[in-house]
Design a protein around this nucleic acid. Sequence first.
DNA 1: GAGTGGTCTAGACCACCAA
DNA 2: TGGTGGTCTAGACCACTCT
Lengths: 245, 245
Amino acid sequence: MDTKYGRIAAELREAIVNGQYSPGDTLPAIPELMERYGVARDTVRDAVRALALEGLVTPLRGVGTVVRDTTPVSLSYNPSAPARTWREQHGDSATDRVVSSELRPADAEIAERLGIAPGTPVVHRVRHQSVKSGVVQIHDQWIPADIADAIKAAGGGDLADPESDLAADLFTLMARAGHAPRETTETISARAADPDEQETMALPPEVPVLVTLRVTRGDGRPVETSTFVGAADRLRQSFTVQLTY
Amino acid sequence: MDTKYGRIAAELREAIVNGQYSPGDTLPAIPELMERYGVARDTVRDAVRALALEGLVTPLRGVGTVVRDTTPVSLSYNPSAPARTWREQHGDSATDRVVSSELRPADAEIAERLGIAPGTPVVHRVRHQSVKSGVVQIHDQWIPADIADAIKAAGGGDLADPESDLAADLFTLMARAGHAPRETTETISARAADPDEQETMALPPEVPVLVTLRVTRGDGRPVETSTFVGAADRLRQSFTVQLTY
DNA sequence: GAGTGGTCTAGACCACCAA
DNA sequence: TGGTGGTCTAGACCACTCT
């Protein structure tokens, strides 16, 4: 890059990856960078925008340009033990917090994913999955109300109550309640983050999100569907499939 | 968005999704938009940049701001028939072209993925996988040279020759040559596109790429590793896993 | 209130492409 | 050569956060 803002971005990038700025630190303010490099305000902003685009920094009005933590977070799909919890995968400093859980009528998209009529009651649960540096994935999950009822009847706990401590992981509870998951399909894509997502995960607008749609089927019907949204520059999703040749 | 550039972007976005501009068309030039909206040049550019960030348009110097084709392209992973070809998945207008194929020493990363010593010869194949509107995925593949030799000896064709027509899909050839694939692991993430990728897939710099790393193992050793890089706003990758509860 | 980043202007020059 | 987008300036005003 032989532009001014490109050179400034390169210098700042170098300083960040070399550890001269640590995650949480703020870069020098725009007026200071203007003076240091002898350029106009918009030139500095172009440089900062380039870094934000790479996911290295998050400019915050009234605060400064904050250096992000870009340590990768891996999600692995292991068919023989697919329901490992977030904390089991990421250690004790990780948290998986249920932020809401309620009974609602299914909208058109969820109804289609679950193979039910729109308006049928479903339990909608939202979790924020975090590592030390903050929320890295938002998990929206929908479960048909009759399956939630079966789990409650089997002593598994009340899914629609965000305060309820469940007796085990959801798939195990489903199995105990006679709705054992048999097969799961995930569809992965990426897109720009919406403002809500930017706020919860402290993402600069330029960092995309990895979006995973999951539909889990039991015997003859879907038992659960989920949408996972995570910071694309930090998540790695892996899975293994057996082949027959 | 109650900024000027946000409103201009919204109007242009509306016109694009409504079909007033078709893929390949150019938006009105910057000076015309300046006059139409009564704003300064950089305000128009901010609006155009927002659209480029969403993957809707690609500004090209000397040409204009070109509207992109954003039809989604789905990739599905079907364990019972995992080696479906690109054309089988996407129809006759799709192409899967081998752009290079050569014998080379493995670099450190590839050696690690294949479990061999750095410098061991491997066949490196590069394909461009396209749909009607252009290249949407770049597939880099590495195969240990001894396995390529075994395939050649079994009459499957010369992998290192980009002109060679192979007798069947690679995994089938491997099975015939005594190196049947047994298991494959894919790791998916997303990141900004590098300049090469931007050029081959006609991506605006703001559109991220979905990156899939694949390692395929046969009996006791990796038989192949691949890197797939595709336009994240167009690709959907899905896979299905059987569960046991 | 002081300091931060966000938006916007009017004008200039440059790099690139097509006819 | 004329038109396109890309960069850059100097200055202004605004929105937001923190103390």
